[in-house]
């Protein structure tokens, strides 16, 4: 049990009358990359939002982070414990400059190595350094996604939640991005839970995967296994 980073069980959520999640259970091991696949409306984004206890969702269930129950913690507290969330549509601060966005990523940190970390992510994404003092809203989609990811990593998270990082990006940029995720996972040991529609790429870097259908887990297992599963191939890989 001790090697579990995140343990979600019996997660239920609804928007008004509509049930979105009906008793979901997910486990993410320390250090792995875990992927949740699913079609539109399957409840992927809601899952991530419920884990972080974001507002609007009317949810119940047990969420344990490193064995500690966080289902009643508020978002700020959860972030402080080491969970970072890159929301769908990036969620940067458009009026603030790139460097301020990164500083905000380290908001929960109290140490004084923030500037070193900023330099590190600037090395990883040199284009961000070029646009250091530019308002984040003026960056291109790919640059904003890089900014969002590095901002999330600025909090030195143990667990990184990524919500559809490929949305609205060109295929080449997506591939680069996923390579970077793999690198970060390998070098930093950051656990990742990625929600994705682009099953091919996601399964390529994942250790484990879940397939979400209308609010329940339809399939789960090691990524390699799912890749070869005929049902997954037909539904998500277009084979």
């Amino acid at each position: 049990m001790s090697d579990l980073m995140l343990e979600v069980s019996d997660l239920k959520a609804s928007y008004g009358q509509v049930d979105v999640l009906r008793g979901l259970a997910i486990e993410v091991k320390k250090g792995e990359v875990c992927v949740i696949l699913g079609a539109n409306g399957a409840g992927k984004t809601t899952t991530l939002r419920s884990i972080c206890n974001m507002p609007i969702v009317n949810c119940s269930g047990n969420v344990k982070f490193e064995g500690v129950d966080i289902s009643d913690e508020d978002t700020g507290g959860i972030v402080g414990m080491g969970v970072a969330h890159v929301p769908q549509g990036r969620g940067t601060f458009p009026e603030l400059s790139t460097i301020e966005n990164l500083q905000l990523g380290a908001y929960v940190r109290t140490d004084n190595e923030v500037d070193d970390d900023i330099d590190r992510w600037f090395q990883m994404f040199p284009v961000l350094k070029e646009r250091k003092d530019q308002a984040a809203g003026s960056l291109s989609g790919g640059e904003q996604q890089m900014l969002a990811v590095s901002r999330a990593l600025m909090s030195r998270p143990k667990l990184l939640l990524l919500d559809e990082p490929s949305l609205g990006l060109a295929p080449l940029i997506i591939e680069d991005l996923f390579k970077t995720f793999e690198e970060i996972n390998r070098n930093e040991g950051t656990t990742m839970l990625i929600v994705e529609q682009n099953a091919n790429l996601a399964l390529g870097i994942a250790d484990n995967a879940y397939v979400l259908e209308t609010g329940t887990i339809a399939l789960s297992g090691p990524a390699e296994e799912l890749k070869n599963d005929p049902a997954v191939q037909e539904a998500y890989l277009g084979a």
Binding site: M54, P55, T75, G76, V79, G80, A84, P87, L96, Y107
Partner: peptide, 10 residues
Amino acid sequence: SNTESSRLVG
């Protein structure tokens, strides 16, 4: 600038 993301950075 962005209330929701502010929550997400803690």
